[in-house]
Design a protein around this nucleic acid. Structure first.
Lengths: 222, 222
DNA sequence: GGATGTGAATGTCTTCACAGCT
DNA sequence: AGCTGTGAAGACATTCACATCC
């Protein structure tokens, strides 16, 4: 199971979501064909993706929904609770704090930081906003796994450097800038501007050259 | 200039941002080497990306900053103004409406829709919130180019179908679900859950298998 | 019979390496 | 001398096609 590509991992998330829906609808079994149709990919791709991690299906039958669901949650590391910190309480940071849909997948925001004295000390959603100055200490004390960076572009790299120094091993970046992290730290970015510009390109240059994969976007590599 | 890959287009956005910074700092020329270092890629990659669109550099010298900036803006279709509509005024939609950093690149939100009667008719940032029921008409009247989908997953596909029927050719999806569009429509997605799960996978499975690309990760194809 | 799992083939993207300008 | 532009090579990802098993 070494060397699984990133597109594959992203598709696993997708399958997980589809399987969750299927389970809610009480469907007990699913074929690679059906997963592919719902996920906008191909049956061969689904089977190949899963084959990197083991052999979960039954030939002639397909995959057991609850079974595959459990396997995927395990593969993606979603059986444990992840301790997340949010840095930056501007428009985007506040929205994320309010949204928290990802909490259901085990991502819990345990600390919130901002540099603005007017915000420090206030409570947002049951959490006290801490000063960005005490970031390293708090990240360490709270054993934060993942930091969500929602600060202006100019401040983002410094936040990352400090988080990495405090032992954080995962960064989710919302700042519209390219960040650099050491090899042992995982980085993903969400960059709306890149996506909009991709649409602009697609709309400008004929209709038929499409937009693209990776929504996701962005393209980091840790 | 046919058949340019999506990763290439995303990197053009990145170069554009770097060039903007360089210009603000008054730097007149830049090498593929420097663009690569700042952009977290390689010099060969930068040159290859640009070569799809023409020959913009001077051998022995590098690229002229203002010149390349102008070329990229033209390639990405950023010389015109794009008419954008936002559908869904929940946490994320409201944040986007408040954020609007992308306005500087020519993306103007001209219409806002929500299904909640309590929100319809209110003014947000100078725009009256319209009923989702009148979406098709307004999209057509206002000649909207791009629709940002910020509704719950269950409602997203219907919003897209209606937008497409109204002539919209670009969709930016924030709903945590896979959307399907006809070939002539460009689609990009931003899916935070996929990115977080990618981090979870990376953190779980050894430290050394990194996270990935394309932030942006998501992966559509129109 | 029906659907998986997978080597082999194909396709796509990145990196190399160097010829060619300035 | 320096740095671009690019064909060719290499790495990576997807698709094909079929043997395999329930």
């Amino acid at each position: 199971m070494r060397k699984v590509s990133d597109p594959t991992v992203s598709r696993l998330s997708l399958y997980l979501r589809i399987l969750t829906e299927l389970q809610e609808q009480g469907q007990s079994t699913v074929s690679s064909e059906e997963l592919a149709r719902r996920g906008g990919t191909t049956a061969a791709q689904v089977r190949k993706d899963l084959s990197f991690f083991g052999t979960f299906g039954k030939r002639g039958l397909g995959y057991g929904v609850p079974d595959l669901l459990a396997k995927l949650r395990s593969i993606l590391g979603l059986e444990r609770r992840w301790r997340v910190a949010l840095v930056g309480l501007g428009k985007i940071g506040s929205a994320l704090l309010g949204y928290q849909d990802f909490r259901r997948q085990g991502f819990h925001v345990e600390a919130v930081f901002d540099a603005d004295p007017a915000k420090i000390g206030r409570r947002w959603d049951g959490l006290e906003v801490r000063s960005a100055a005490e970031m390293e200490d708090v990240l360490r004390e709270q054993e934060i796994d993942i930091v969500i960076v929602a600060v202006p572009a100019e401040a983002a790299q410094e936040v990352v450097d400090r988080a990495v120094r405090a032992g954080v091993r995962g960064i989710l970046n919302f700042a519209p800038t390219k960040l650099h992290v050491p090899p042992h730290v995982a980085l993903r970015s969400v960059n709306m501007t890149v996506e909009l510009e991709g649409l602009s390109y697609a709309l400008s240059n004929g209709g038929r050259e499409a937009a693209g994969r990776r929504s996701g976007v962005g393209g980091d590599r840790s």
